[in-house]
Write a protein that binds this DNA or RNA. Structure first.
Lengths: 225, 225
DNA sequence: GTAGTACGCGAACATCGTTCGCAATCTATA
DNA sequence: TATAGATTGCGAACGATGTTCGCGTACTAC
């Protein structure tokens, strides 16, 4: 039984004996990513992936122990889009750049934030990223645990920001706004009312805005106090 | 058709005419919360809630348009556990206290972080909370949008922290650790290797640790720069 | 009384993740 | 070259899910 208590990256992809596999984890992953890019994570069903691959649903379980495994593969796969080069020597600038890249990747794959937050699994690519961030922070006089927390927060904050960003114009957010406006007119929430009166349509969240936010969070986390 | 494009709190709970309802949204909500507290969010199926209520699954749709609506009700319901009193005049202290309470609520209801992050919907209780936070920040010389971002980050960071906290001892996290250790021994990740060599078992995340983290994040976000 | 309306809910539909069993196809060994 | 062993491919099925339909029931308003 290939059922080990391990994470998927600890299991060998193919056995050396027996009938050779006709497909690969990478194939499943890229198909799943393509589907998710078009139709969201909910579109990624085992049946759909299998159909797109031209096989039956049961075949996928030769490559993956569960759907969650496939999701882990997806998340780690797009982490390859990071370009971990060009350290400037300024740790803050380098970390903000990592966040900028992460935001870019998440905007390109709108399903990523949900995965990053719900399951924090690190694959090979994720490990490379963590290694890079720790390298950037090597000279920084902070406790190791703090640095790991900074990494986690970098990802979590970015994911939360992008998720808020991508659902901005959607119907979901507009219902929210509609309800908040009704709350504002109810009289019991003067601060919210004042907020809506001033803001009008919410300001477009752009690149600089995010970079500033991230820089502030990271400074708060890692500056020697 | 009660199918409106509105969020659930904009739809009247019961009509004034016709056969009166035998149950209430609050009843569904409290049953769903009890289930989620015991068996997690996945345990909250329409069938299970209905069974616990002594009815058929179809009956629930007289009170709720979808399962997601029920989840929204749950999230807003536990937001009533906040005690929004005792403003000290120190905005940072007050906000950290809000975070502390949020963490307490999320520890009590381990399913909350997932909801807070994935769907950021604000109900009546959520609006009260936002109103309170905006009130705390009234004197603070920051742009309104920044204050809303601070509120969102306060919630997101707390949720991410608690989620990382509650899955600490679980099998899931241990698989992670096992894989990271293998990565460390592979030789290509010296920083990670150094980290694991020093840290040993991860330090227990306690109250003070979280408060410090939150204070740093909030200071970074809201301090006049 | 009568009309109108909303509720209760059994039954069913579509879809989902996953498992089982066996035929097919490969490597390793003799 | 035959045989043994191991793994893959996958049709069929299981159990569970969210949701819809239709109809009988129970109420309010007139």
């Amino acid at each position: 039984m290939p059922e080990g208590p391990d994470v998927i990256w600890m299991r060998p992809e193919h056995a050396t004996v027996g009938r050779p596999a006709e497909r690969s984890r990478a194939e499943l992953t890229s198909v799943a990513i393509a589907i998710a890019d078009h139709d969201g994570l909910d579109g990624v069903s085992m049946r759909r992936v299998a159909a797109e691959l031209g096989t039956g649903p049961a075949s996928l379980y030769r490559y993956v122990a569960s759907r969650d495994d496939l999701l882990d593969l997806m998340a780690d796969s797009v982490a390859a889009e990071f370009e971990l080069t060009g350290r400037t020597g300024d740790w803050l600038a380098d970390l903000v750049d990592v966040g900028r890249q992460a935001r870019g990747i998440m905007l390109r794959h709108a399903w990523l934030p949900g995965l990053v937050i719900s399951r924090g699994t690190l694959g090979p690519r994720g490990a490379d990223l963590l290694e890079y961030v720790l390298g950037v922070l090597a000279e920084q006089p902070a406790e190791p645990i703090t640095k790991v927390e900074a990494f986690a927060m970098l990802m979590a904050v970015t994911a939360a920001y992008v998720q808020h960003e991508t659902s901005a114009g959607l119907a979901e957010q507009q219902r929210q706004a509609a309800y908040l406006e009704r709350v504002a007119t109810d009289g019991g929430h003067p601060q919210i009312a004042a907020l809506l009166a001033v803001a009008g349509p919410s300001a477009a969240p752009d690149q600089d805005r995010f970079a500033l936010l991230l820089a502030r969070v990271l400074t708060g986390l890692l500056s020697h106090t």
